[in-house]
């Protein structure tokens, strides 16, 4: 556990001041890199604790319609991996919160796992979430990440057995991302006793902080998660808000859920 305590410690420190932290998600280059920068600025000012920066992929299997369209538009508008890395480097140096990459396995595979991890370390990204790279397929990824004290963020799902939660936890560092429900990003979630029960299973499987995402979109959802999880993740909803009201609305939206 010596490696990559940085992110975990940051989360623990922040939790002393706040009951639950907030992580948000943007697709880099959607609708443009300038707008992406403004959204990050707004969100950090409004009090977001961590951010996921998605490198768009043409086949985002785990994403629902909102993020899927954002991925497509970003690629159509010329969001390349190289430009995303430049953007990430800039925001990581301009803003004082941890940033993580989110993308799909092929983006890292094509770039080279080793080279990708080296780049992440160089530009001060803290970790990454790769939903289609389970530990069984990602040994070279895990090695490359751990060698540089970077956090591979693993995902728990409600269909994951207790045994497998333990298996996943053995590779995880930084925090664990718990899917609130089945399905893809951006659909409604019922915040109920079932969810509480599942989160208590997650809590038993790991000492790492728990983030909960998929369907978190308003203050009531975030409030429900207090005491049950450490980080609430808002993904599709911030993209919707920006689509409807522009990037300047991102800050007010964040303040409304905190």
């Amino acid at each position: 556990m010596a490696e990559s305590l940085k992110l975990q410690l940051y989360i623990k420190e922040r939790l002393k001041k706040r009951e639950i932290l907030l992580m948000t998600h943007i697709v880099m280059g959607y609708p443009s890199f300038d707008a992406s920068y403004e959204i990050v600025e707004q969100m950090v000012e409004a009090g977001v604790d961590l951010m996921e920066l998605q490198i768009p992929f043409s086949e985002p299997m785990a994403d629902g319609p909102v993020i899927l369209k954002a991925n497509q538009k970003a690629i159509d508008n010329g969001s390349t991996v190289e430009k995303c890395l430049e953007f990430a480097e800039k925001v990581a140096s301009d803003f004082p919160i941890p940033f993580l990459f989110m993308s799909y396995a092929n983006i890292l595979y094509r770039y080279g796992m080793e080279k990708f991890a080296a780049k992440m370390a160089e530009i001060n990204l803290q970790g990454s979430i790769v939903p289609d790279l389970p530990p069984e397929e990602g040994q070279d990824y895990i090695e490359a990440m751990k060698k540089r004290q970077l956090d591979p963020i693993y995902i728990f799902s409600p269909t994951t057995s207790d045994e497998r939660l333990g298996y996943l936890a053995s590779f995880a560092s930084g925090f664990v991302y718990c899917l609130a429900r089945k399905g893809v990003t951006g659909k409604d979630t019922s915040f109920s006793d079932d969810l509480a029960l599942y989160l208590s299973r997650c809590r038993k499987a790991t000492d790492l902080p728990l983030a909960v995402g998929f369907g978190v979109k308003e203050k009531a959802d975030v409030d429900y998660l207090k005491g049950k999880a450490d980080i609430a993740v808002i993904g599709s909803q911030t993209i919707r808000v920006v689509e409807e009201s522009g990037s300047r609305a991102a800050g007010d939206f964040i303040r409304s859920v905190l």
Binding site: M61, A62, A105, P131, D132, L133, P134, E136, E137, Y154, I155, F156, S157, P158, T159, T160, S161, R164, L168, L179, K182, G183
Partner: peptide, 11 residues
Amino acid sequence: GAFLPEILVAT
């Protein structure tokens, strides 16, 4: 291989 999102592993 099987590059599966976690939600589908059990299935």
